[in-house]
């Protein structure tokens, strides 16, 4: 057992010098008059697509994204998308809509659970990994960096946000903050769930010849739909 040995070594090493004080304050971070404008600019700079649905039906904006990307189905697992972002439970698509087979699949988690047995698990994982488009609701947005915050909890997993090539995030205007310091004053990591991810743009790599490529392991196409508060 190395714990006591390491702690003993660390303790005596610490004593060679008097303790240094911990800064009591924190450096400032920018606050914006119009965070939406900054958020949009930063998000587009990292290769995301920003869609403003504050003055329109978010369902229509979502349909547009799907049509644009050539998909007919989108998966999500949160009821919040309906209640918070004002998507009607029964989606009524415009008559003119060109993809009549469009399916909105709600509550992925309600239909599938990851079983413990390895064989069954791998089948479910394969099904999960085959999903091309998913949607989620962001807990917060951060304007300074064009970031959205995804949390985990009952009915809100992590895999559906990472595995598909296309991901669509709904963010309510009231949840848009200016900077990360505000976020960390607002939430305590770990309080709500076992994981929290700050997402800034699509998945990317520049490991081959310093050329920037999107969609290394996570989503290649990344949309953020801004909605009005309360829906």
């Amino acid at each position: 057992m190395s714990r006591p040995r390491i702690l003993q070594k660390v303790r005596s090493a610490c004593r060679v010098k008097p303790p240094a004080p911990l800064p009591s304050g924190y450096p400032g971070a920018p606050r914006f008059q119009d965070p939406v404008d900054v958020f949009r600019r930063e998000l587009e700079a990292v290769g995301g697509v920003f869609l403003d649905a504050r003055n329109r039906n978010p369902a229509e904006t979502l349909s547009q994204v799907l049509e644009q990307t050539g998909h007919t189905e989108v998966f999500w697992e949160e009821e919040k998308i309906f209640t918070k972002h004002g998507l009607p439970y029964r989606l009524r698509l415009p008559e003119s809509f060109s993809t009549p087979n469009l399916v909105f699949s709600y509550h992925y988690q309600g239909r599938v659970r990851l079983p413990i047995t390895l064989a069954a698990r791998s089948i479910e994982l394969d099904r999960l990994a085959a999903i091309p488009v998913s949607a989620s609701s962001a807990a917060f947005g951060i304007a300074e960096t064009g970031t959205i915050v995804q949390t985990v909890g009952p009915g809100r997993g992590r895999l559906l946000n990472v595995l598909p090539e296309t991901h669509i995030v709904f963010l309510a205007q009231g949840d848009l903050l200016s900077n990360m310091d505000q976020l960390l004053q607002r939430i305590r990591p770990g309080e709500e769930g076992s994981a929290l991810t700050l997402v800034t743009g699509p998945s990317r790599t520049a490991d081959i010849g310093k050329v920037l490529v999107k969609g290394m392991h996570g989503p290649r196409r990344w949309f953020v739909i801004l909605t009005e508060d309360g829906g």
Binding site: V46, R113, G153, G190, L198
Partner: peptide, 22 residues
């Protein structure tokens, strides 16, 4: 030179009661 990396993961232990993945 990025303002933020694409992902910053905050990990707080294993999956909890009620969480379906992790």
């Amino acid at each position: 030179g990025q303002k933020s990396t694409s992902y910053v993961n905050f990990i707080n232990g294993p999956r909890r009661e009620g969480e379906w993945d992790g």
